[in-house]
Design a protein around this nucleic acid. Structure first.
Lengths: 236, 236
DNA sequence: GACGTTACCTGCGCG
DNA sequence: TCGCGCAGGTAACGT
């Protein structure tokens, strides 16, 4: 019986954000706990991070407009703006996020009637500048499951988006499973038949060197799965 | 003993605003009284104008922003905004100024928390338009010493600013005083050894023709001093 | 809509 | 060098 671990790649139309798992972009505290991106698992680590959404930045998002447009459905799902009973209240509020270093970022969040869009304004340009974000780079948002008032923001470089599109990497055992190839199916694609250890820090994938973190998932069974969140280290 | 009047030029780092003394921009009533720019004299004509400050206009001050930024230290010195007991009150109020024709100008005056600056807003653009003010032109503010609720606003053209920098001209008598030359000392610089009469309307200074007004000052003694507020008439 | 008014926001220069 | 002031913006809304 085959017991060596294999790596499966699940093709995803909307891959989960890998951002939060880049060790360079995670606070030390957050790096020490088991993370998961899944929102369907019924077994959560109390400090699990719940990813909310990510957005590839447009030129405007990183330009002189000093604002980030938040896609409406994400905004309304994750950052509801209560229209205050006070008429002077315009519904704008300040959201506070933690970044990979634990630094707090306060952004003004409001709805622009003129453009029918939700935006982060005040504070946003400082974030863009500090992280050296450029068009095509991706920002991700998440929150702590236990204390849902704790919000997180992360980012990754444009070039890393390719790795992101590679989707979740599932490390499991192949016993009895038929190996799948190709990107269209429901089943994982085995892209490498042997991985030295589950918590390997580096992976060569599609000719690209990746750093990644793996996190324990208790489902689905019978395949013990992990998710890896790759980050491009170098392109040979 | 030499008794003919001499003109002294006091070099000044911050020359007093000459604006209010341009007959073209002063009301007839104001032209008939002796003006002085000094705020230290103990003998004031009851209708004396106390100059407050002047500001060279920026492109923004005369542009589409429809506001004049008042330099903070001037604003806080001359136009204190009482922070109302009501928290919703932002301290905005309406200031009313008289111009050179006696016309009343009402400007909204308020503090912008966001930019930490004091501004004249509503009404300002009308003033800019009527006076045809452009970037570099200078506006001046003053108040009546006797009735300090009377505020005045004046202006002069950009090109007239050079004469302003010539500083105060002091007309006196040289008896017994050693003549000083150069700009660095505490003593006045005699720039012309004879002036036909104290109330001369024109002065040629540094190759520049100036119109000027002189005002009676009772101090300091023993030199009877005057202050002249020159305005460039032509540059040969 | 166009425009004016108010109320925000930020880069940058300067002391 | 770093905080502050302000020049130069934008957003929202009333008219």
């Amino acid at each position: 019986m085959e017991t060596s671990p294999h790596i499966y790649i699940y093709p995803q139309q909307n891959p989960h954000p890998p951002y939060f798992f880049h060790h360079h972009h995670l606070s030390k505290e957050m790096q020490t706990i088991p993370w998961t991106l899944t929102t369907t698992s019924s077994h959560h680590h109390p400090n699990q991070l719940e990813p909310m959404f990510e957005k590839p930045l447009t030129p405007s998002d990183v330009g002189k407009l000093n604002r980030l447009v938040i896609p409406k459905h994400h905004a309304e799902t994750h950052f509801p703006l209560v229209s205050s009973s006070s008429s002077s209240e315009k519904g704008g509020l300040t959201l506070c996020f933690e970044d990979e270093s634990g630094k707090q970022w306060r952004f003004r969040y409001s709805y622009w009637n003129s453009s029918q869009s939700y935006v982060l304004t005040k504070g946003w340009s400082r974030y863009v500048k500090e992280k050296r974000l450029d068009a095509g780079d991706v920002v991700s948002f998440g929150r702590c499951r236990r204390d849902r008032s704790r919000l997180f923001i992360g980012w990754r470089r444009r070039d890393e988006a390719a790795a992101s599109a590679a989707a979740a990497v599932v490390v499991g055992q192949t016993q009895g499973r038929r190996q799948q190839h190709g990107w269209g199916g429901d089943h994982p694609v085995i892209i490498e038949s042997a991985v030295p250890q589950v918590y390997s820090k580096r992976l060569r994938l599609f000719g690209v060197n990746l750093d990644y973190y793996v996190t324990d998932r208790t489902e689905p069974d019978p395949v013990r799965t992990y998710q890896a969140y790759p980050r491009i280290v170098s392109i040979p």
